[in-house]
Design a protein around this nucleic acid. Structure first.
Lengths: 236, 236
DNA sequence: TATAAATATTGATTTACATCACATTTTACA
DNA sequence: TGTAAAATGTGATGTAAATCAATATTTATA
């Protein structure tokens, strides 16, 4: 009951940002928990450090205990942030695909993170023997897929103001869970997150400020008129 | 061995178009096959008919026996084709997500299709009891997720020429498996598939024709210079 | 604390693509 | 088979957002 309520308050729509908490570990037997226990390490990553690099071998599934991580794809020139993950989420599930155990994206710590690295073979083994666990993994993958598709669609439809409004709403509702939050992202990162250039982001933020939709003070952004912001997000 | 070879020849990159064949049914016991047998219907959809509508209840998982289907998201004004699926693929897997048994996208037949509709509860039951089956479903979901992410990234990076080159390569390599193919899509549909306007698609096709990259004769398109097309796709 | 480097901001210019308008061809169907 | 409707094709125009350029501010560090 509480859970379904929780899910309803989560802004899913076109959001970049994940709040889906991995419930799968609750489904494990003591024996399986022990297997994970024996095949894991917990690492701490500092702000700016790389958790995994696109193209490298994925020998582990990563579980973010706490912190904030950006997941992004990159090529020579550009990069696109696929999502931003707070604690409770997993990285590298797509490496479960048979014959493709390579990270398809990179991950970088926005804030200091505690990350649990679980051996991918142990993970696969438990999937093979525990259907309830497998079902939860399926749930997480479905959630990811829906989110990515929805965000893709929204990305193709909306233009700059809508996109940035979207991003601000998601940061506020899904990540910081607060109207006012300290944005420890550079304008460049906010631009990547939104799919715009830093200059455009700055211009739009200024406009939002002039229209009293947000208040900016240093790195702190406070959303004053969420209704208007939602309208901008919906309209385009 | 043959399988890994098959996978290598499949152009994955930024392709709209799926070739991933659902292997999962091979993992079923006789009993489970019987359960599916008792809880399925096979329907034939004519060209242009809707297989499922975004927002409607997903009471079935659909397996495309043969034909060609477009999967797309839509709102009042626009639509984005997420992928094009030939026979061997499944529709509606994301409805497996607990508490979200609604289609997130619509599906329409490009060609006449034979579709097997399997009751979603039977499907979920088998996932719960057969880990090998669940594992295959995980494989398919991973494949879908990787494809969607890659396509999203590519969409944000490439511009019109690269996008259309991409689409043509995928049609040729993954769908029709032939350098020359009869394009039973309108320019409007090709535009939707590529994320451009019909006018732009026409202009670019004319340019490709003028540069001897393709030959067009009525509805038939033949790729004359695949290398050049790949270069355009890679370059942008 | 001074200086360099990175980041943020503002304005001018460019550009890729959409939009619009209209002509032509193909397809549907009465 | 003839006519309307839909699809295709082409040119002119508009525009959102990128790019470019130059300055101001913040942050890093020697």
């Amino acid at each position: 009951m509480t859970q379904s309520l929780k899910k309803e308050t989560h802004v899913r729509n076109s959001c970049t940002l994940n709040k889906a908490i991995a419930d799968c570990f609750e489904k494990l037997t003591d024996e399986e928990l022990l297997l994970f226990e024996e095949n894991h390490v917990v690492l701490t990553y500092k702000k700016g450090e790389t958790l995994c690099k696109q193209g490298s071998m994925a020998s582990h599934i990563m579980y973010i205990c706490c912190g904030l991580v950006k997941i992004y794809m990159e090529n020579e020139n550009n990069s696109l942030i696929l999502k931003v993950l707070p604690g409770g989420n997993m990285i590298g599930l797509t490496a479960l695909l048979e014959g493709s155990n390579v990270f398809k994206y990179s991950a970088m710590a926005y804030q200091e993170c505690k990350v649990r690295l679980i051996d991918i073979n142990a993970f696969k083994k438990v999937i093979s023997q525990n259907s309830a666990f497998a079902k939860e993994v399926i749930n997480i993958l479905c959630e990811n897929l829906i989110q990515t598709q929805t965000r893709f669609f929204s990305y193709t439809q909306k233009q700059s103001y809508g996109k940035l409004a979207d991003t601000l709403i998601c940061l506020s509702c899904n990540i910081f869970k607060c109207d006012a939050f300290e944005l420890n992202l550079t304008r460049k990162e906010l631009a990547e997150l939104t799919g715009l250039t830093p200059e455009s982001v700055i211009r739009i933020l200024s406009k939002f400020k002039a229209d009293n939709i947000i208040v900016m003070d240093g790195k702190t952004i406070q959303i004053m008129d969420m209704a208007k912001l939602k309208m901008i997000s919906d309209y385009g």
